[in-house]
Every structure is written in structure tokens, then in C-alpha cells.
Write a protein that binds this DNA or RNA. Structure first.
Lengths: 359, 359
DNA sequence: CAGGTTTGCTAACTCAAGTTATTAATGGGT
DNA sequence: ACCCATTAATAACTTGAGTTAGCAAACCTG
């Protein structure tokens, strides 16, 4: 009704008005102000209106942090990440994972706090996250993160991490998935095989993202073993998981020791490899078989459609979030979830070709 | 040294130990506990060690929210979104935008709080975000969000929103970009043109994501006008921005009123359209010209390489975050930033073909 | 050994709320 | 007029911390 007024509080107003200011302005106690907002029935209509008017006048809003502190709840779910935000957002894997987590947050009316390492440390980042629970991603060597989270009494779920006892965790059967592709390629009759693997990057040399990768290597080794081969029998290249790197690596491979099959540990790398083959005038799968890993949506759209391993990344995110929310309610349950993978055979793989490139 | 002990506090310990508990355990005042952690030089070595030992014993960790409240800082930056988390994470546009925002957060050691609408309201979500500043995305009809943020005295920057006076904002020249593609297509000589536009979806019918789209339509209208045409002269289709929808829409178009050029308002849609042409045995650009909008990384990898409008999405995110951080330091400055776009002509566009499909 | 300085710690205040226990004032009934 | 019940508001406590002011004891100097 009255003028909205020029600003808040006395003199220019650097600081925002508190419930105390409203109380003074309305000539009541601070408790009354709180009641006016939270238990209106405890006040007479007249006083309540007077307080609300004063609040309006000062443009008072209850402080978010103070309310959270008292309530002991933040309505926010944290995701503890092993990499910088920029890298995570660039990565289609996380896009899908966070889609799954997001689905659950949407249902529960929760916000999502992305927490990258602070000064290269996931551990140091924890104290700065005001959340009701944590999803911990890609925790390889536990440098105290689990203990820290326990100490804080915050519920958490590990994802893509070396499983801990008595800690909820969600993992994908990387070993099995990798076994399956390699088995497939071997079954087709390939023996000159190149493995296009993911380089965790120089900075992550130690604590990096090797967990799932290590398990995949194990699966590959198992498949090779069944055919009387070993890791040493294939050409191993490690590059960052970008299309361009896949392209370059594949070109280099074809120039030096051309394989009949390229097994990539990521669809993105496989795309690059296919690009390289086309660029060299080679046919996929006629001349070279190329397989991926992840089954990104694009994989069924490219030509040739990519043979790959489907891992339910979105489901993984959703499962992790579901587990976390149930842990936030019912106390103390530590289920380990292992999600399956399966081979999706499409058009990019076939028996080794008649072409028989130079050897 | 001594036993790590079985648990925290008295009796099973539901609640986490506070500084008070540590004080009691160490036989000192609560202030001393605080000093032990924050200003160790103010205590004698003996007392300090005794306190730290007690803290260790009880596995005490200072409460995050309480510290933030006192410090008046959260070390966290909020992104207020117009859509659900799941939808946002699925959208490659946001992946790139958030990459830019993430770059700045990484530099500053900030976490990123994704804040979707609460019960379909961006306004309602604001009070639940404990952040030092907000990036507000796609705010179309301001239903009080700006006032609410002002009231809270939280710095904020609008992105892709109807610009407000005295409010920082970052926008892309959508009008100019759309003008440029349409100009390009018209200059090539096309007159039977289909516009593949983005449908905000039923639920977003009102407040939806129409802002930038509206500006693009304006640019297209301007280009058409220069050639003596109007919006009515082209076939307009609105579909969700997915590859599959682009595919289906393009097929339907070619079946009913085949154009010589398809102008898509998103690269994703353009990919689908190209898929459709290939599926119909048509050559791009020989038979049909297809253009996109966004210049996603994939656009230079697909064949034919896509003619599209580059909008520096990542830069937009970085700019918004930079603006916000400077607003969080130096007070009161309200710069409006308009980022340019430019046409990237690749292989998917050419003069209307000799083919001359039925019409 | 008085006087001042330094050390070491605590009481009390601050951040900004929400909640319980208590008091003061009013109304009704006899 | 007196007693009890009800209503309305406040004082005081709680969430969990960080910070300033001030007091007591020990130390040092003349």
C-alpha cells in the first residue's frame, strides 16, 4: 500500500535487515516476527499484519543459512567429483550420470551441489559443501574422504570407487563389459587388435580415474587369456577421451602397425577412430572393425552404427541417488549395487576382411 | 595415539559432537576450542594439544552451515534454472554453458549449486539456495524473481533473459545469428524453405524458453523481408530439440511439401534432418540444403560438415560467471554484455540443386 | 617487593534464525 | 469482587560456530 521505500535499513543499507530490525520497526519482540511467518495462529491478526507490513516495508527475507542451520537440513544433495567442473561438464559420461541423479533430485525437490576438488583434493572440498548427503564419484585411493564423511555423520554413496566395507556403493560391471567386447572381437576371428584406452591425464597420474579402467583391463586380459593371448599381444595406446585424440591415435596406429580391429574404451574415441578410417579411405567394418564403450545416444546414429557396450549410466546415477535418499531416511543400511552391462552388436564390427592390409 | 573409540558422544550418539562437547571433554571453554582450530597462537601448546586430542577422540568436525553463517560466505555459486535438472543435464547447450561457468568456479575454488524450479517456480527455489551469487538462466516473464534476489541483496546476473534495467545481463545476439543463416540460405537462391524450430514443450507453454527463440524468429523475419518474403512463405515446424524429432519432422516435410532447404534452429535437429535425407536417398547439399544453429563440436565431424551459426556458449557461461564474481567484489555495476554470433559455412549448404524434386 | 607488562584463558557478544516456557492481560462465570 | 481459563506476547533457550573484551596469574623490571 504505502510507498515501497527507497532502500533497506538505516543509512544506505549495506547490511540486509534481520528479524530483529523488523521487530523494532513493528514494536514487538523478535519471537513475534518469527511467529508471524511460521505460526501465524499464535498471534492476533492485528499484530501479525503489523509485523508483515513492517517486514514488507524493510523488504525483509529470512536468511537462508540461518534457517538451514536451525532446521538441520539443506534440501541439497552433493556430488563429490574427482575432476574440475569444466572437465566434468565437458564429459558426456557425467552428463548422463547427472541426468540420473537429477531425476531423483527433481522428484524430491532437492538442489544439486557440484563439488570439485579443492586445491586438487576431494578431501579438502568436503567441509565447504552444505549438503544433506553426498554422492562420491570415482574415488580411487581413499585419502581419508570416507573417514571424513563418516566423521561428519553425513550419509554418502560411493560410485565408480574401490568398494569399501560397510559403505553403500554403486558400480558397473566394467570387468564383464570389457570382457564381452574383447570376446566378441576375438570370436569374430581378429588377432591383430589395437586397444584405444583412456589416459587419465598427467595431473591425475596418481589418484586419477583408473578404477573402472583397471577393471576393464582385467576383463580384457581375461578374454585374451581364453584365446591364449595376453595384453602384450595387442597394441596399447592411451589418449585423452576426445574425438580428436581418437582420430589422431587411430591414424598413427594405421601408419605404424595396422590392426584388423580397434577396441576403444569409449564411444567418443571410437568415433574418432571411424573418422580416421574414412579419412584413410578405409571401410568400417570391411577393412577395420571398430568397437566402442558406453553406448552414447549418438552411437546408433552414426554410420556405421557402432558396436559397443551399453552401460546404464543414467540408471547408475538414479540408483546412487535413490540409495542416498533412503540412507538419509532409514538409518544404517549399506547395500552394494552392481549394475550389469551388455554388448550391443551393430554395424561397425565384422570378421577380419579380405583386404589384408600390409603387415 | 589412544584408542580411536567406538563412537561419538554419550549413548550411541545420534547427534554429532559440537565444539561444546569438545570443550567439556578437554576441560576448557568453548572459545578455547575455536581458538585451537583458528588461532592456535593464542593458546599455550599444552592446552591446544589437549583440545585437539579431545576433538580427535570425539571425532569432532566444525559444522559447515554454522561456519558459513558466521562467515557470511558459502564459497558456492548458484545457477537458477528454468527447467528440471534431468532436462538440463540432457541438454548439450547447458553442458557447454556450465562448462564456461565451471571454468571460473574452478579458478575461484567455488562449488556450483544447480537450482531447478521448485514446484514449477523459479521464485520458490531461491530461498533454498545457500549461495554467494546467482546466475539466472532463461528468465522469461519475471514473476518476481528479480525483486526477490534484490531483496536478498544477493548479486546476480541474468542470462538469456529479457534484459532488465539496472541488472547485469549476458545475452547472445540471437536476432543477428538467425538473420545470418536465413540471409545465407536466401542468398544461395533458395525460396522453398522449411524452418525446423524448437518446441518449448507443452508444460512450458507459457513461461517456457521462448525468449531467445522469439528473437531468432525476428531475425529470420528480417532476412525474409529483405527478399520480399514473410514468415508465412515458409513451412514452419516446431518439435522438441532431439535428433529423433528432427529426423521425423524432416521426413514428414519431404513427404508433404518438400523444400530445397531446411533451416534448423538447433544442430541436433539438423543432424536428424540430415539423417532423414540420407534415409530417403537424398544428397545433402546436392538435393537439399540443411543448416543448423549452435555449432556443437560434432558439427564439424559429421559428414557433410554442417553449415551453422556459432554462438560462443562456453564464453557466455564464463562471461556470466566473471561478471558475477566482479559484482560480488566491487559493488554496484550493471553492465550488459551482448555476445556476437557468426555464420560458419561448411558443406551442408549450396545453391538449390538441379534435382528439382516434385512440388 | 611494588608496578607494569605479558601470557592464557574465559565470559559475553556476534552471525540469524526457530521454539519452549513464562508472564501479563483479558474474559467469563459465580 | 474473586477465581480460573484463555489469549497474546515476550524472555530465554536452541541450532553451532567465530571474535572481542576483559580478568587473573605469571613474568619482568627497577
Amino acid at each position: 500500500m504505502s510507498s515501497i521505500s527507497s532502500g533497506a535499513g538505516p543509512r544506505g543499507g549495506r547490511t540486509r535487515p534481520t528479524a530483529n530490525d523488523v521487530a523494532k520497526a513493528a514494536g514487538v519482540s523478535r519471537s513475534a516476527v518469527s511467529f508471524a511467518f511460521n505460526s501465524p495462529e499464535k498471534l492476533s491478526t492485528a499484530t501479525r499484519d503489523r509485523i508483515l507490513a513492517a517486514a514488507q516495508e524493510l523488504s525483509y527475507v529470512p536468511n537462508t543459512l540461518a534457517r538451514m542451520l536451525k532446521a538441520g537440513q539443506t534440501q541439497s544433495l552433493g556430488v563429490l567429483l574427482p575432476q574440475n567442473l569444466a572437465k566434468v561438464m565437458e564429459n558426456p559420461y557425467y552428463a548422463r550420470f547427472l541426468t540420473g541423479v537429477g531425476q531423483v533430485c527433481d522428484e524430491q525437490g532437492y538442489t544439486l551441489l557440484l563439488t570439485p576438488p579443492l586445491r586438487d583434493s576431494m578431501l579438502k572440498a568436503i567441509p565447504y559443501a552444505a549438503v544433506d548427503g553426498f554422492i562420491v564419484c570415482g574415488l580411487e585411493h581413499d585419502r581419508g574422504e570416507v573417514a571424513e564423511l563418516r566423521r561428519r555423520g553425513i550419509p554418502f554413496v560411493l560410485v565408480d570407487s574401490s568398494p569399501h566395507q560397510d559403505v553403500s556403493s554403486v558400480d558397473v560391471d566394467d570387468e564383464g563389459g570389457a570382457y564381452e567386447v574383447m570376446r566378441h572381437v576375438l570370436d569374430l576371428g581378429h588377432r591383430r587388435i589395437a586397444l584405444l584406452s583412456i589416459d587419465p591425464g598427467p595431473e591425475h597420474a596418481e589418484r586419477g580415474y583408473r578404477g573402472p579402467l583397471a577393471r576393464r583391463i582385467a576383463g580384457i586380459t581375461r578374454a585374451l587369456g581364453e584365446s591364449g593371448m595376453g595384453l602384450g599381444d595387442l597394441e596399447l595406446v592411451e589418449v585423452p577421451a576426445t574425438r580428436m585424440d581418437g582420430f589422431r591415435a587411430a591414424k598413427a596406429l594405421m601408419a605404424s602397425a595396422p590392426p584388423t580391429a580397434v577396441v576403444a574404451m569409449s564411444d567418443i574415441l571410437a568415433f574418432g577412430a571411424v573418422d580416421a578410417m574414412h579419412d584413410l579411405g578405409l571401410n568400417v567394418p570391411g577393412d577395420v572393425t571398430v568397437t566402442g564403450y558406453d553406448d552414447l545416444p549418438e552411437s546408433s546414429w552414426t554410420r556405421p552404427r557402432l558396436t559397443t557396450i551399453r552401460q546404464a549410466i543414467t540408471t547408475k546415477g538414479r540408483t546412487a541417488a535413490d540409495l542416498l535418499f533412503s540412507a538419509m531416511r532409514d538409518e544404517d543400511q549399506h547395500p552394494h549395487q552392481l549394475l550389469g552391462t551388455h554388448l550391443v552388436v551393430r554395424d561397425s564390427s565384422s570378421r577380419p576382411g579380405r583386404t589384408g592390409l600390409s603387415g
